[in-house]
């Protein structure tokens, strides 16, 4: 445990030195804040930028506040997971290639403690960034569009945080199994896309698939919660644990230069 604390602090220092502690939250905040603003000004933007003939009247239904937050989560599902991939695609492989991993693991530190410290540091940063960005989106939504049901919004945030944890854990595992950061990012994002695509194409056969997590998060905001909500959350947690176990398993057997 104390071993783990020491490496964990080293990981946080590393995140600060590589500026991830700064740019990940800022990019999430930027994405989150711009969604309600763009939604709010969309009629004005269309009227000014579109090549509409003079006097065209654009009528748009005013969006519900829950819808706007759900769209924000959709943004996080696409650009946000790309950002998480960019941030953590080399979590282990870059340290392994540069020799830093060998230097650390020469000391009496267990490899699982090393990996778990990296994983928790990643989780803290991803959850923190997501929460900051989501709160920004929430604030602007209630300012510009309308009040949001707080309990529903928090439930959606927690479910979405689990989905980003799945993606982040996939990234860490990818960086353990593959030497190249780009390959890790491609395969982890590919798996995440596969999960959510199969879940949306076969909603009844894969009702419990963790790929339903982003849909479930939006469901909380839009007021349509599927029956299998509990099972999806459990499946997501189990999948995260399984990927983490696969990463630790490989880490223990890895040859270091």
């Amino acid at each position: 445990m104390s071993q783990w604390m020491i490496i964990w602090r080293k990981e946080l220092l590393e995140l600060a030195r590589s500026y991830k502690l700064l740019w990940l939250p800022l990019v999430f905040l930027l994405l989150g804040v711009s969604q309600p603003i763009v939604t709010y000004f969309l009629p004005d933007i269309l009227a000014n930028a579109g090549n509409f003939p003079q006097g065209t009247v654009i009528e748009m239904p005013k969006p519900q506040s829950g819808e706007v937050l759900a769209q924000t989560l959709q943004q996080y599902g696409m650009i946000g997971s790309l950002i998480v991939a960019l941030g953590f695609m080399g979590a282990v492989s870059s340290e392994r290639n540069s020799g830093a991993a060998s230097m650390i693991l020469v000391k009496p530190i267990s490899r699982s403690a090393y990996l778990l410290a990296k994983w928790t540091a990643m989780l803290v940063l991803v959850w923190g960034s997501l929460t900051i960005g989501y709160l920004g989106a929430w604030y602007y939504t209630s300012l510009l569009i309308g009040e949001v049901d707080a309990i529903r919004a928090i439930q959606a945030l927690l479910v979405f945080a689990l989905w980003l944890s799945v993606i982040g854990t996939l990234m860490i595992a990818g960086s353990v199994w593959l030497r190249s950061g780009a390959a890790a990012a491609f395969s982890a994002l590919g798996l995440a896309i596969l999960l959510s695509l199969t879940a949306s194409f076969l909603p009844s056969a894969l009702a419990w698939s963790p790929g339903q997590l982003p849909g479930l998060a939006s469901g909380f905001l839009l007021g349509s919660i599927p029956d299998a909500a509990g099972m999806i959350i459990i499946a997501g947690a189990v999948l995260t644990a399984a990927i983490l176990y696969a990463a630790v398993w490989r880490m223990r057997r890895m040859e270091l230069p």
Binding site: L26, L29, L30, V33, S34, I37, Y40, Y140, L144
Partner: peptide, 9 residues
């Protein structure tokens, strides 16, 4: 409304 966006950028 959009000033914070510019500040973050």
């Amino acid at each position: 409304i959009i000033a914070p966006l510019f500040v973050i950028q």
